[in-house]
Simulated assay, not measured.
Amino acid sequence: MILGDGLYNFIKVLGHTFIGLHGNLRNKDSGAILPTDRHTISENPPSLSYDDQRRTSIFLKDRIPTWVAITGYVAIAIVSTITLPHIFHPLKWYYIVVIYIIAPVLAFCNAYGCGLTDWSLASTYGKLAIFTIGAWAGASHGGVLAGLAACGVMMNIVSTASDLTQDFKTGYMTLASPRSMFVSQVIGTAMGCVVSPCVFWLFYKAFTDIGETGSQYPAPYALVYRNMAILGVEGFSALPKHCLTLCYVFFAGSMVVNGIRDAVGKKWARFIPLPMAMAIPFYIGGYFTIDMCVGSLILFVWRKMNKAEADAFGPAVASGLICGDGIWTLPSSLLALARVNPPICMKFLSRATNTRVDSFLGS
């Protein structure tokens, strides 16, 4: 569902772009520059507020040239293609070239999904790299290591797209220069290239049993991703029954739902759910759905009471709620370390498990 929704919107945006360019070229060739009595300019869309007009003008005035983005992407791709095979020998240079060719499409999908849900799904697209590159390399040519390394490359490219989107949105809302936001991102990435290896080296030297089951830092995700890489090398035959069938059905279903949304128009499309938003709870759990539902309900009621105030202060309230939810992770971790259990625990069980629990409680 995530991939289908993202690809549909990528093709849709690309189609609108080509149609717009074609229309501009036709108007330029026809020589129709100034309006005449018979050819009048179409009515402008409803004007934006003064704040939005100023934000838009500042954001577009200092934007990054397209040639800088393309040149930088190609330069990074060349550096990665040369250096990574020397670090991870099973990861051949042509694997990296294929990743950098496919990555822009998946980066758009991730930025689109992050814009809808404020949740980066870079790990989802990284898993696609694990399965494809691992199966391509094969078990006899280090497919497990090649798949894991390809996952790291893909996740870095795709996650950067969503991070930049959020940074540019912040710059748009705060009247900051897009170039300053981009430079800040570059500085932070450069710092991460130094800080991250140092932190890893510190953990690696301080805890000799890191990554082992039962240790203080078991690194459970390492085992999960390694097993996924092994699964990708072994082929689709190792997947659970009907797994691929479900993938195909929901991929096609997300395409159909988006097509219906575009066909019925804006009036009725607002009653049809977004496939990306439906897919998120399946991916990360139901707690995220509850947060979004409560927040949407608050915003809906607020707009009914005072629409202007809700539009003006809604983002600030949402930012405060998100920040508070994130900061609560720290005291929650401290309570977990102190082995303090919550007074109430809710779980959703299958019918068979629930029957066994009821029979146990009844006895």
Rank of each mutant, 00 (worst) to 15 (best):
A219W: 02
M292F: 15
N354W: 00
I260Q: 05
C247I: 12
P331C: 01
V195D: 07
H86Y: 12
V153K: 08
G314W: 11
I290W: 15
G147E: 03
G286S: 15
P331A: 03
T40C: 06
D29M: 10
P343I: 03
F168L: 11
M276T: 10
G259N: 05
A137K: 01
L48P: 00
G285C: 08
F360E: 11
P343K: 01
I157D: 15
A190R: 03
G152V: 06
G20V: 01
T353N: 08
Q185R: 02
L274H: 13
Y225R: 04
F251V: 11
A252C: 11
Y172G: 15
I58P: 02
M346F: 14
T245S: 10
I344Q: 03
T83M: 09
L164D: 08
G320L: 15
P281M: 11
P90L: 04
V68N: 06
D52S: 00
P273S: 13
V144S: 01
I11D: 04
G138Q: 00
P281L: 12
G326T: 04
D291F: 11
F271A: 10
I41Q: 08
N27K: 08
A122D: 09
L274N: 15
G4H: 06
M278A: 13
S120N: 05
S159I: 03
P275N: 13
C114L: 13
K205F: 15
S162R: 08
V105Q: 04
G147Y: 07
A129D: 08
N24G: 03
F108V: 14
G115C: 07
S363G: 10
R270T: 09
A352G: 01
N9M: 05
N306Q: 06
V97I: 10
A107N: 04
A310R: 11
K92P: 02
E212F: 13
K241S: 07
T355W: 00
L145E: 09
